[in-house]
């Protein structure tokens, strides 16, 4: 993801959270914290997962995260997570590099949300 995509993704998240919070600044902060409370620990869990033995755990985390990234407007991250979840469900596995790319995308999203709190 280049810098322009990150800016665009951040503005989408901002617009969506603005809409969801009906313009209430306190509510907006509250929602962002709620998302961060889930996304941050799950990013740690994903980074710690072993693609050799933790595919089901990875699937479960991706399933949980995909709805949340979709709500904040990260369609690309949602598509990536859905595709990986489907691959694991159908008996395949995702590679270390695919997991790393997903973690990096999630990390950018978290950074965007943290920036919105400033």
């Amino acid at each position: 993801m280049d810098g322009r995509d990150a800016v665009s993704s951040a503005s989408t998240a901002m617009e969506i959270i603005d809409r969801l919070s009906a313009g209430d600044p306190e509510k907006k902060k509250y929602y962002i914290r709620l998302f961060l409370d889930t996304l941050e620990p799950e990013l740690v869990n994903l980074r710690a997962a072993d693609v050799g033995s933790d595919q089901e755990r990875i699937r479960s985390i991706l399933h949980k995260l995909k709805s949340q990234v979709q709500t904040i407007g990260a369609a690309d991250a949602h598509a990536m997570m859905s595709a990986h979840e489907q691959t694991i469900k159908s008996g395949g596995g995702i590679s270390q590099s695919e997991l790393d790319t997903t973690c990096d995308r999630l990390s950018t999203l978290i950074q965007n949300l943290q920036d919105l709190l400033k």
């Binding site: 969801l20 509510k27 929602y31 709620l34 409370d37 889930t38 949980k64 709805s67 949340q68 709500t71």
Partner: peptide, 16 residues
């Protein structure tokens, strides 16, 4: 729903 942020947002949306 075990998805805490989305449940909270959906609840607020329905209340609104």
């Amino acid at each position: 729903d075990d998805d805490i942020p989305n449940t909270e947002i959906l609840r607020d949306f329905l209340i609104r």
